[in-house]
Design a protein around this nucleic acid. Structure first.
Ligand SMILES: NC(=O)c1ccc[n+]([C@@H]2O[C@H](COP(=O)([O-])OP(=O)(O)OC[C@H]3O[C@@H](n4cnc5c(N)ncnc54)[C@H](O)[C@@H]3O)[C@@H](O)[C@H]2O)c1
Ligand SMILES: NC(=O)c1ccc[n+]([C@@H]2O[C@H](COP(=O)([O-])OP(=O)(O)OC[C@H]3O[C@@H](n4cnc5c(N)ncnc54)[C@H](O)[C@@H]3O)[C@@H](O)[C@H]2O)c1
Lengths: 242, 242
DNA sequence: CTCACTTTGTGCCTGGGTTCACAAGCGCTT
DNA sequence: AAGCGCTTGTGAACCCAGGCACAAAGTGAG
């Protein structure tokens, strides 16, 4: 690496003009907009939409302004048009083929989930290492052996992979997905995945979410009664205050 | 709604001294530390731990410094001691009782997931509105009718609730949980939940994660070959390169 | 006891993101 | 045709977070 200037670009950097934080909110706006469209609402103000999406209205306006000037001053935004624009920006104009690796409890739930199909995604391949699972039909699709991963990815032109295997094999599965050509991965296994720079990984980690909740919960308790009732480790603690 | 001053406290504000971003990383550190402990490693440097957790070492040190000065200069951190300190900070010294509402596909997967129990949580109650599900045993626990929600929360002293119902009833379920005394909620339904300020809500939304991936994927495609080879919808696309 | 080496803890700077506040723009009414 | 009220789009200030770089502090060898 030459000591080239390379100004910044720390991690994901700026994606064209749309900040990463904005991208993460666009799907929320899209959902709120779709709901409004279903209700027959044709126009919405930033204030109303912001409330529905649970954000500050100034933030919403700024977010939308990154996509272009699609509102009308004094009036608001046209719901249908905005749905179209946000969808286009997110790349949801056509369906993205998806592969799920690992069809245990979680994989089954994901495969059966109808919410993906209606939102720009189509599950095209299911693979698992368990011989007992191979051949089983899940959500109208047959589970294929892990050995077919590469050809399935190629055949269906799959760019997005979902990992729902045990953590121990997640990196291995990830490597195979990447070398097969998958460049976006959604990881449910509790592991830090190492991938080439051009591959995008997002993780969903339920334990982490719960632990964050526990942290805040503990603070509330601690703030309430400063007398720490959290003794060492007493799981079967019956009477607390008595 | 008095026009009280209410200076700032924008959202979650600062939680005592630990920044929110740090709290979100502590579970990752904890996992890496636990793995090291299992391997019998007794001491670890910030550099090593940072690599294992996938973060910058300076960031890791700063994060840990919010908990106290638990390292030894020239040596590193004692793994066991740090596990203890991080666990304590996250409030994982004792198990938190959890209730799951909605035992469809996802609820089943969650109830059967062993990763929670080993990380400071204990699923104590399962409720669902479907009469066919009530009485069924899932992961060693009997599903109870939604009507018993309040007493189950009270009986087990539950502070953390997981919502895995359809989005249409999520707010309703949320309201019941809150009024029953639950003050932390993990929401899987694709809805923005309205809750009192003191209640902490975290959401896990798979569609949003996929849509973010789609956004980046689209950018790569657009950047690579401007000639969009993503025709409308051609599911049975057989030969690609041949 | 001193010195060299290692690693932590943190001051400081930079950059991104959020929010406020307001000018610019649009439509409706008179 | 002009004015008025409403809503967008954005400039600017503020705040949080990330990362560099280094002094402080500990260890071990000689
Ligand atoms: N179930 C949950 O609610 C939950 C919650 C949080 C995290 N997770 C994580 O999600 C992952 C899956 O969870 P689960 O409950 O479905 O586990 P599971 O054990 O039910 O399913 C894992 C599946 O992966 C398959 N598998 C194993 N090795 C494989 C390989 N090399 N290639 C392909 N498939 C392979 C297994 O055959 C099995 O079907 C785990 O990493 C778990 O930690 C699950
Ligand atoms: N399955 C997935 O992979 C997945 C992915 C993303 C999001 N989600 C979301 O998670 C939620 C659950 O998904 P699922 O696939 O398990 O759905 P599901 O339909 O299989 O399960 C929903 C369960 O909730 C129960 N329920 C309905 N109304 C209830 C009420 N008022 N009180 C208590 N229980 C009630 C139903 O009886 C059913 O058992 C949905 O909101 C869905 O959008 C699921």
């Amino acid at each position: 690496m030459t000591s080239a200037p390379r100004p910044a670009s720390p991690r994901a950097a700026r994606t064209r003009g749309v900040p990463e934080a904005t991208v993460a909110r666009l799907p929320v706006y899209l959902r709120a907009l779709s709901a409004l469209a279903d209700e027959g609402v044709s126009t919405v103000s930033s204030e109303e939409l912001a409330t529905a999406a649970g954000v500050n209205s100034a933030k919403l306006r700024k977010d939308l302004s990154y996509l272009g000037s699609y509102g009308t001053r004094g009036v608001g935004y046209d719901v249908g048009y905005l749905v179209y624009q946000v969808s286009r920006e997110l790349g949801l104009s056509q369906d993205w083929p998806v592969i799920i690796v690992g069809l245990g409890h979680l994989g089954h739930a994901l495969a059966n989930y109808g919410g993906f199909v209606s939102r720009g995604f189509a599950i095209r391949a299911l693979v698992d290492a368990d011989p007992d699972l191979v051949g089983v039909e899940v959500a109208g699709l047959e589970v294929r052996p892990i050995g077919e991963l590469e050809q399935l990815v190629a055949r269906h032109g799959i760019a997005i992979g979902v990992i729902a295997t045990p953590a121990t094999v997640a990196q291995e599965v990830c490597d195979r997905l990447v070398s097969a050509g998958v460049s976006s991965i959604l990881n449910f296994a509790p592991t830090v995945l190492a991938v080439p720079e051009e591959v995008e990984v997002r993780k969903v980690d339920l334990s982490i979410e719960l632990q964050i909740l526990a942290f805040h919960e503990q603070r509330k308790v601690g703030a309430a009664h400063v007398t720490r009732e959290l003794v060492e480790a007493l799981p079967g603690r019956a009477a607390v205050s008595s």
